[in-house]
Amino acid sequence: MIDELVTALRPLSAPPSGPGWNHADMTELLGDSRRLPAAVLVGFREGVQPRLVLTVRTDHLQAHAGQVAFPGGRSEPGDDGALATALRESEEEIGLDRRLVTPLGYLDRFETISGYCITPVVARIAAEARLYPAPDEVAEVFEVPLAFLLEPANLRRYTMEFRGHRRSMVEFVHGGHRIWGATAAMLHNLLERMGRT
């Protein structure tokens, strides 16, 4: 299953650049303003059944409070590319030791309504990695089996209206967690690249 995933990724030697795959949609909503660089870690914990690591953001955050998200955030001047950002943010948010992370490749970049252009970094996380939420940012860390995400019946499609525009959306619901918005869109991009949509 992980082998199939790896073959669908952009290689580590060629990180994606330029606008996100949804740039046209975001330009309708945001105009041509500069998008800030950011990165997230799409991390799969090793095991008999690989499991995707996700977080629930705390309720008091100014942006995306209470939402399910990948660990990650805005790139900082000291970061040497998206991989460095994703590893740094994962260490800060969920205590993930970067020595237990094996980067595998990249998904296509994605632009958010909050003005970021996100580079998703896909990686393998060692089974023994201990994860714990940073209480000022993360309320919970949970895991979703890759097999669940690959099951077509678990992908829900719907349409929402935002700023006068109708937008096609996707979501997953697992164990009481609603995975939607940017997180679901990036997972959908992974499924598309794997030929699983």
Rank of each mutant, 00 (worst) to 15 (best):
M1N: 09
I2M: 15
L5R: 08
L5D: 07
A8L: 03
P11I: 10
S13W: 10
P15E: 08
P16Y: 13
S17Y: 02
G18M: 07
W21A: 15
W21R: 13
N22C: 08
P37C: 06
P37Y: 06
A39S: 12
F44N: 02
R45M: 08
E46A: 14
E46L: 14
V48I: 12
Q49F: 01
R51N: 09
L52A: 06
V53S: 01
D59P: 03
D59Q: 15
D59G: 15
H60S: 14
H60W: 15
L61A: 13
H64E: 13
A69L: 09
F70M: 04
S75W: 07
E76V: 15
D79P: 06
A82W: 09
L83E: 12
A84C: 11
T85K: 05
A86S: 12
S90E: 05
E92F: 03
D97M: 05
R98P: 12
R99K: 12
R99C: 09
L100D: 00
L100T: 01
L100S: 02
V101E: 01
P103N: 02
L104Y: 02
L104H: 01
G105I: 02
Y106D: 03
D108W: 09
F110L: 07
T112E: 03
G115N: 05
V122Q: 08
I125N: 01
A126C: 04
A127G: 04
E128V: 13
E128R: 07
L131Q: 02
P133T: 02
A134E: 13
A134L: 08
E137G: 10
V138G: 01
V138M: 01
A139T: 09
E140D: 12
V141W: 04
P145Q: 08
L146I: 08
L150H: 03
E151D: 11
Y158V: 00
Y158P: 00
T159G: 10
F162Q: 14
R163A: 08
S168W: 15
S168A: 14
V170P: 01
E171K: 12
G175D: 12
G176I: 02
I179C: 10
T183L: 14
A184R: 12
A185V: 03
A185Y: 02
H188K: 09
E192V: 11
G195T: 06
R196F: 11
T197Q: 10
